Amino acid sequence: MLTLDKVFNAQSVLKKIIRETPLVRAYGIAPDCELYLKPENLQITGSFKVRGSAYKIAMLSDEEKQKGVIACSAGNHAQGVALAATKNGISSLICLPDTAPISKVEATKGFGAQVCLVPGCYDDAYEKALSLKEQEGYTFVHPFDDENVIAGQGTIALEILNDLDNIDAIVVPVGGGGLISGIAYTAKQIRPSVKIYGVQVAGAASMYNSVKHSQIECLDSVHTIADGIAVKQPGENTFRYVNDYVDDIALVTDDEVSSAILALIEKQKMIAEGAGAAAVAAVMFDKFALKGKRVVSIVSGGNIDVTSLSRVIERGLFQSGRSSSLLIELLDKPGQLKDISRIIADCGANVTGVHYEKGNTESVNGCFLRIEMETRDYAHVHLIMESLRAEGFKIV
């Protein structure tokens, strides 16, 4: 059973393993509320996952420790289990799909785990882990649906409540539900007035759908840049805790998550993965009634691949109107580009790309000109469009 005593015990056990991440006041991200960030992206493994994994492993019997632990993950949970097992002098085996990024495979090995690459997807790796568990007698460390794992994640709430008074709400990303279960249970026991809000991405809304329909549901597929919370089905324990202690759950889009990642980089100099930025996205895009409130958003992890980060930044720039593209239909004659460039420059934007395209225009002598620009926001883009139209240019 999950108890408050167990969460406090987890806090004591974890002192030598995890890093207590201090709250950071965020400026310029959500001006309508007083926003603080809990930067678990600065955790030792780059994610909160090590808290639950380490407490679960610390609570094993001597016999279980001797046989070692096994887990299945393509990311943060793998690294958390690996580090926690190594710190406790226990062997660990992590089953990973053979499609997992090399960087994550090497990071898992770097924390002291053996890695078993399994052909196929996550589900194949999961089945392999369960098979090896039965064969070798390993203890399986579940990524979220385990009382000790949930208690370990609950230590985040203890740190938040100790660091900051008069909190109105804590906003938490949700995948399988281990993180929000621990935080919600702990916070509600200590300070029942604090609102707990969960955030899922629209492409992986398993907990959201389950709560709305009052029964656990399994998605056919998940598709999102927030791979850390791309879970097809919530756990039985976590579904119960979310129903009992979470005040509301909302959905964000991949574009909103991309904008939040970009905002964290620019405003806070903080790198977050998709899952880590989901709670910030919910606050940025007013998914909950938080105006004038003191709010804490959990930045749950920062393990994002560099190539993915560049694509996310580009998407975030488009989503926020910082980067834009206009397709202009015009007559193919000298001087057109000069006039267009002058108008854009007079509006204070910067042209970053010009592409000449022939196509099916109204005029035989027509063509298309695609202009890529750096702009301030959507209002700036609209100003440029209206200025071009005012001088007779047709925006397609």
Rank of each mutant, 00 (worst) to 15 (best):
A263T: 10
G68M: 14
L327E: 14
E159D: 14
L96M: 15
F285H: 15
F285L: 09
S73A: 08
I44K: 12
V7F: 06
D332S: 13
D332F: 13
E374F: 04
A345K: 05
G120M: 09
S53D: 05
L4G: 09
K15M: 08
S214G: 04
E256V: 09
M385F: 03
S92K: 07
Y356A: 11
G366D: 01
R240V: 02
E147S: 10
T86Q: 14
L130Y: 09
E362S: 08
Y55C: 06
D62R: 10
D165A: 14
F48V: 11
C72Y: 03
I265A: 13
V280P: 01
V115S: 07
E314Y: 10
T45R: 01
K394C: 08
V194D: 07
E391P: 00
A107F: 07
A187W: 01
G137C: 14
I328Y: 11
A100G: 04
T99L: 04
P234D: 01
E374H: 10
L164F: 11
K6V: 06
A272C: 11
G175F: 13
G353T: 02
D254F: 02
E63T: 11
E386Y: 08
K87D: 06
E217F: 07
F368P: 10
S320Y: 01
S73V: 06
S206K: 10
G75D: 00
V69D: 04
A345V: 07
K67Y: 12
G321M: 12
D168A: 08
C116Q: 14
A10G: 01
V381Y: 06
L309H: 02
G321E: 13
H355Y: 12
S297I: 10
E127I: 01
C121E: 13
A278D: 00
Y138M: 12
D305N: 15
I44G: 00
I18R: 05
I102G: 03
D254P: 00
N350V: 06
V222F: 07
D163N: 15
V283R: 02
R25C: 09
G182P: 11
T21K: 02
Y378D: 09
K232T: 05
V222Q: 04
M373H: 07
A226Q: 02
D5I: 09
A230T: 06
S61C: 12
N162Q: 15
I225E: 00
K333T: 15
K291E: 14
E34G: 05
D123Y: 06
A78P: 04
F285P: 00
H355T: 14
L383D: 13
Y208I: 06
A278S: 15
V295S: 14
R342S: 14
A379I: 08
G28F: 03
K358T: 13
V364E: 09
M270V: 05
C116N: 13
L262I: 09
G292Y: 03
H355C: 05
V149H: 02
F239C: 06
R191E: 14
K232C: 02
D346Y: 14
L179E: 01
